Computed example of a mutant assay.
Amino acid sequence: MIQINEYFEGNVKSLGYNRVNGKSTVGVMEPGEYTFNTGSPETMIVIEGQMEVLLHGEEIWKTYNEGNSFDVPGNASFQVKVASQTSYLCRYE
């Protein structure tokens, strides 16, 4: 079953689905700054666009472009800035 997710007053939307090795979401972010919280570890892959990311416990923002990915530990938060619509795939463990 496909799950529809909407966050930050509709500025981030995704579709969630089950895969063989866990769950994933594919979504789009409107320009803005967002703070996400994780329950389980996840891998975020930028499909199109660019994200500036500040991972939990780090002090330096890193830029991730199309095709780049980053890992986020479980039970943590991370901050994201996007300047234009950006699409992503998020894989949950």
Rank of each mutant, 00 (worst) to 15 (best):
M1E: 14
M1G: 15
I2V: 14
Q3C: 14
Q3M: 12
Q3D: 14
I4R: 08
I4P: 03
N5V: 01
N5K: 05
N5A: 07
E6M: 01
Y7P: 06
E9I: 04
G10V: 03
N11M: 05
N11L: 07
K13D: 01
K13G: 01
S14E: 07
G16L: 05
G16S: 02
G16K: 02
Y17I: 10
Y17W: 03
Y17A: 13
K23L: 06
S24Y: 09
S24W: 05
T25C: 03
T25E: 13
V26K: 06
G27S: 01
G27I: 05
V28I: 14
V28A: 09
V28M: 04
M29Y: 07
E30C: 02
E30K: 08
P31N: 12
P31A: 15
E33V: 01
E33Y: 00
Y34H: 04
Y34A: 10
T35F: 04
T35G: 02
F36G: 03
F36K: 00
F36I: 02
F36S: 05
F36D: 02
G39E: 13
G39N: 14
G39L: 15
P41Q: 09
E42Y: 08
E42P: 00
E42R: 05
E42F: 01
T43L: 03
I45N: 12
V46E: 05
V46R: 05
E48L: 12
E48M: 10
G49A: 05
E52N: 09
V53Q: 01
V53N: 03
L55H: 09
L55E: 15
L55D: 11
L55Y: 07
H56L: 08
H56I: 07
H56M: 10
E59Q: 12
E59H: 15
I60P: 00
W61C: 04
K62L: 10
K62E: 11
T63F: 00
N65I: 12
N65A: 04
E66V: 07
E66R: 10
F70S: 08
V72F: 03
V72W: 09
P73T: 15
G74Y: 06
G74L: 07
N75P: 00
A76E: 11
A76T: 03
A76F: 06
S77E: 11
F78L: 08
V80N: 04
V80F: 06
V80L: 13
V80T: 13
V80M: 06
V82H: 04
V82R: 02
V82K: 00
A83D: 15
Q85Y: 00
Q85G: 03
Y88S: 00
L89D: 02
R91H: 06
R91V: 07
R91C: 01
Y92F: 15
Y92V: 06
E93N: 07
